[in-house]
């Protein structure tokens, strides 16, 4: 089942690559730089909404006594890890794209700033998860930290939106429009396929990361270092 998912993901990613690099036309204004869109938007979607959404939901389910299972905690951790990787990718790709179209690597736009703060918030969350502790303690602590980080995101977003728009308006808003060009035809299709491909990639990674977490958990219980190493090797298949 997971293998099928992996194969479909790989195929869709290949289709995305072909569509993005060959089929879709260069943008009238940005030229070939627009092709970064097909990576940038899907990674942002996976990181911000999917991963951190799943992390928050799983944390809330763990905290709710009736649905408390150790799996929720592991799922939250696995999802946050993938989210951090993807959000770092989003920032990196966005930065390259910004250099190509705006001429700067970084601008203190609301969206960029919120994303950067989000990355640091969840890095902190992962650091907290790595602190050795009894599983229940760690789960409670990280679930609460995850929810705290999650409620902070809208506040950060709101504050940087105001921060930007109360005084300085011109440059950033124009640049922002560049980020959201009206798109047509093959560009739209490429983007949609890219979104699907990256969403599937997320689930594929999540299944593997979650399994790995479960195995780690069991191994911790049994203190079988050998078994741990073996399963890790088994789960660490490099995505195609």
């Amino acid at each position: 089942m997971t293998r099928v998912l992996g194969i479909v993901t790989a195929a869709l990613l290949a289709v995305t690559a072909v569509m993005a690099l060959v089929v879709s036309p260069p943008d009238a204004v940005q030229g070939d730089a627009v092709r970064l869109l097909y990576v940038h938007v899907p990674t942002a979607w996976v990181a911000m909404y999917l991963s951190f959404g799943v992390t928050s939901l799983a944390s809330a389910l763990w905290l709710w006594p009736r649905t408390r299972r150790r799996s929720w905690d592991l799922l939250a951790g696995a999802s946050a890890e993938i989210g951090v990787v993807f959000i770092a990718l989003t920032l990196a790709v966005g930065s390259i794209w910004g250099r190509a179209t705006w001429g700067v690597w970084w601008t203190w736009d609301a969206r960029l700033t919120t994303t950067a703060v989000l990355l640091v918030l969840y890095l902190g969350y992962l650091a907290l998860r790595r602190v050795p502790a009894d599983p229940d303690t760690r789960a409670r602590r990280s679930a609460i930290a995850a929810l705290l980080a999650f409620v902070d995101v809208p506040i950060v977003h709101q504050s940087v939106v105001w921060w930007r728009t109360l005084h300085q308006q011109a440059s950033v808003l124009e640049e922002n429009r560049l980020l959201h060009p009206t798109i047509h035809g093959s560009m739209l299709w490429t983007l949609l396929i890219g979104l699907t491909a990256f969403t599937l990639l997320y689930f594929w990674l999540l299944v593997h990361r979650f399994r790995l977490a479960r195995v780690e958990d069991e191994a911790e219980d049994r203190r079988l270092e050998l078994a741990l190493a073996e399963r890790r090797a088994e789960a660490d298949v490099v995505p195609a």
């Binding site: 703060v117 918030l121 650091a127 907290l128 709101q158």
Partner: peptide, 10 residues
């Protein structure tokens, strides 16, 4: 500091 500073950024 890693936990608190990003949270109190607003």
């Amino acid at each position: 500091p890693l936990l608190i500073l990003p949270v109190v950024a607003p």
